[in-house]
């Protein structure tokens, strides 16, 4: 219980930090880092939930997190290529900044 709360709390904290940074920062890279950290927070929370104080941990959240990581890395890769293509075309249009 305490482990779950401790680590789960850390997950929540990461999540909120990531959210804050995502909302506040403009550059793509920082946004991506923020969203990844936010995601890590959620994953962290899930893993903390799987912890069962001695008993073998619940495998379901672990599997969910694995799925989540794949998805996150795919999205990050796609977003980075978007960013590169945008750079090649001269960056974000002025009126969109």
């Amino acid at each position: 219980m305490s482990t779950q709360l401790l680590y789960g709390g850390a997950g929540v904290a990461l999540c909120v930090l990531g959210l804050w940074a995502f909302l506040v920062h403009r550059p793509l890279l920082r946004k991506l880092i923020a969203i990844n950290i936010m995601g890590s927070g959620v994953f962290h929370l899930l893993i903390a939930l799987a912890e069962r104080d001695g008993a073998p941990p619940d495998p379901v959240p672990h599997a969910l997190v694995l799925t989540g990581i794949v998805v996150a890395v795919s999205a990050t890769a796609l977003a980075l290529v978007f960013g590169r293509r945008l750079d090649e075309q001269g960056g974000v249009p002025e009126d969109e900044r």
Binding site: A50, P57, H62
Partner: peptide, 9 residues
């Protein structure tokens, strides 16, 4: 936290 699968990934 006992999640080596995820840690590996």
């Amino acid at each position: 936290l006992g999640a080596p699968d995820v840690a590996l990934a």
